[in-house]
């Protein structure tokens, strides 16, 4: 059994591939955050698909809040709870549940998109 334990330990250590990566450095958003030409299609939708639509999809959405397309996201923002939840503001239910907070750049882009009237 000692031998098995030894090999198991070796396996875990050997297969370990610990990296110290972050999205900002690897994917180039470490520079100035671009909030000049933010649109739903290029900036907001990929975030929605990755972080929100799993629970807030088109069918049987969590809490009845659907975020699957431009119209539904716009309606949710206009409902007044969306930005506070994503920004983890006091008094709001922080989102995404079970996930980490959006990066400062992503939140800035969301705010810029809202301030520009939520263009498609």
């Amino acid at each position: 059994m000692t031998k098995v334990s030894f090999w198991l330990l070796g396996l875990v250590l050997g297969l370990s591939s610990c990296y110290y990566d972050n999205r900002e450095d690897l994917y180039g958003s470490a520079g100035p955050c671009d909030t000049t030409a933010v649109s739903y299609t290029t900036h907001i939708k990929p975030l929605m698909d990755q972080q929100c639509v799993g629970c807030h999809g088109a069918t049987a959405p969590s809490a009845g809040i659907s975020l699957h397309d431009w119209a539904s996201v716009k309606a949710s923002v206009q409902g007044g709870r969306f930005v506070g939840s994503v920004d983890w503001q006091t008094g709001y239910s922080p989102m995404p549940k079970g996930g980490s907070k959006w990066t400062p750049c992503q939140i800035s882009q969301l705010n810029a998109w809202v301030n520009k009237g939520m263009p498609q």
Binding site: S17, C18, Y19, Y20, D21, N22, R23, E24, D25, L26, A30, S100, K101, W102, T103, P104
Partner: peptide, 13 residues
């Protein structure tokens, strides 16, 4: 807990 990919450069792995 070790996280290989975090979001921000300031986030600890």
């Amino acid at each position: 807990v070790h996280i290989n990919l975090v979001d921000a450069a300031s986030d600890p792995n």
